[in-house]
C-alpha cells in the first residue's frame, strides 16, 4: 500500500500561483487528475515525481518527502508528458537502459517483461525516432514499468493516441489499479477520466475544485445552474410558462436581441420542460442553446461552489 499525500501545497513561479493550497491523498487504485489546460496538473505531477519542490506545504510518499529523495524512485514510475527520449536508441536499448539505471538484478529480463506488457516487442529493434506518437507513449510506459513500481504517475498519457491505443492503455492502467498499485493520470477530458478512474480529483486554476468518485463529479457538473439562450415565436408567453416551473430560477426578456436568457437549476427537468411547455402553448421554438458550456466554465463553477 503506497500513498502519496499532498498536504496544503502551494507552488508559485515568481508572481504566478500555479498551485494554490491543495491537499489530496492519492491511494492505491486508479485516480484521475482532471482539469482544463493550464490548471496546474503538470505542476502537481512534477511535485509528486520529485522534479519540483512545493513553495509551501509537503508532498510525501508514505510519509517521506519526495523532493531531493532519489530513493523514492524505487517506488515511482513516471511517464512524462514531453516526448523527448533518447531517440537514437532502439526501443529495446532505451528500456534496457532504464532497467540498468534502476540497478535491477536482471535488467534484460525486466526490459523484456516491460516491453511485453505494453505489447511493443514487435518494434523493439527499431529506433525510437521512427516510432509514432502512440508507440513512443507505450515505450515511455515500458520504461516506467521496468522496476514494477508501486506508484505510476502519468502526465496526459492519452494525448495523441488513437482510440485503439487509448483502449489498450486504459485496460493496462485498470489492471495496475486492480493489482493494488497507485496509479495517477492527468487529463483535461472528463469522458476520458470517467471511463478509467474510480476516483477523480478536479483542479481548476491551481485550486482543488472537487474530489470524489466519478458519479459524484458527473452530478456536480450537471447539477449546477445552466444558462440557456432561447428564441421562439412568442418569447413573453414562453417566459411566463417556464418561470412557473421549479426548474428555472430566472428569466430575462432581452427585447433588443429578441431572445430569452434563462437560468435553469434542474438540468434534466428543464430540458424536458421546454419542448413540452412550448408545444402546449403552441409556441414555436427557434433556438435553444446552452450558454457558457465550455469545460472552463463548468470547472469554474465547481471552484466557486466549493
Amino acid at each position: 500500500m503506497t500513498t502519496i499525500s499532498i498536504d496544503r501545497v502551494s507552488r508559485w513561479f515568481g508572481n504566478v500561483v500555479a498551485v494554490n493550497d491543495v491537499s489530496m491523498t492519492i491511494e492505491p487504485g486508479v485516480t484521475g487528475l482532471l482539469g482544463p489546460n493550464g490548471a496546474g496538473k503538470s505542476t502537481l505531477i512534477h511535485m509528486m515525481s520529485g522534479f519540483l519542490p512545493p513553495s509551501s506545504g509537503s508532498v510525501t510518499l508514505d510519509g517521506t518527502p519526495i523532493w531531493k529523495n532519489q530513493q523514492a524512485y524505487k517506488q515511482i514510475g513516471l511517464v512524462p508528458e514531453r516526448e523527448a527520449m533518447y531517440d537514437f536508441l532502439t526501443g529495446w536499448d532505451f528500456v534496457l537502459a532504464n532497467a540498468e539505471l534502476h540497478g535491477l538484478p536482471d535488467p534484460g529480463a525486466a526490459a523484456k517483461r516491460a516491453l511485453a506488457t505494453v505489447e511493443m516487442e514487435y518494434a523493439q529493434e527499431r529506433q525510437v525516432s521512427t516510432y509514432s506518437k502512440g508507440m513512443k507513449q507505450r515505450v515511455k510506459m515500458a520504461s516506467a514499468l521496468v522496476h514494477e513500481p508501486a506508484v505510476l504517475l502519468l502526465d496526459e498519457p492519452f494525448n495523441g493516441m488513437d482510440p485503439r491505443q487509448r483502449m489498450q492503455l486504459m485496460e493496462l492502467l485498470r489492471r495496475f489499479g486492480a493489482e493494488g498499485r497507485t496509479v495517477l493520470f492527468s487529463s483535461h477530458i472528463l469522458e476520458e477520466v470517467e471511463q478509467l478512474a474510480r476516483h477523480i480529483e478536479v483542479i481548476v486554476a491551481g485550486r482543488h475544485a472537487a474530489s470524489g468518485d466519478y458519479r459524484k463529479i458527473r452530478r456536480l457538473m450537471t447539477d449546477r445552474p445552466h444558462r440557456y439562450t432561447v428564441r421562439s415565436s412568442d418569447d413573453r408567453a414562453l417566459a411566463a410558462a417556464l418561470i412557473a416551473d421549479a426548474s428555472t430560477a430566472g428569466i430575462e426578456l432581452d427585447l433588443k436581441e429578441q431572445q430569452l436568457q434563462i437560468q435553469a437549476v434542474d438540468f434534466y427537468r428543464f430540458t424536458e420542460l421546454v419542448p413540452r411547455v412550448a408545444k402546449e402553448a403552441g409556441i414555436r421554438l427557434l433556438t435553444v442553446s446552452p450558454a457558457d458550456e465550455s469545460l472552463e466554465s463548468v470547472f469554474s463553477y465547481l471552484v466557486a461552489a466549493k
Binding site: S49, G50, F51, Q70, Q71, A72, Y73, K74, I76, L78, P80, R82, A84, M85, Y86, A97, N98, L101, H102, G103, S143
Partner: peptide, 15 residues
C-alpha cells in the same frame, strides 16, 4: 533542453 534527462534523474541514483 529537450527534457529527456528525466529518464536519468527519475532513478534511485545519486546525482
Amino acid at each position: 533542453d529537450d527534457g529527456s534527462i528525466i529518464y536519468l534523474l527519475s532513478k534511485p541514483q545519486p546525482r
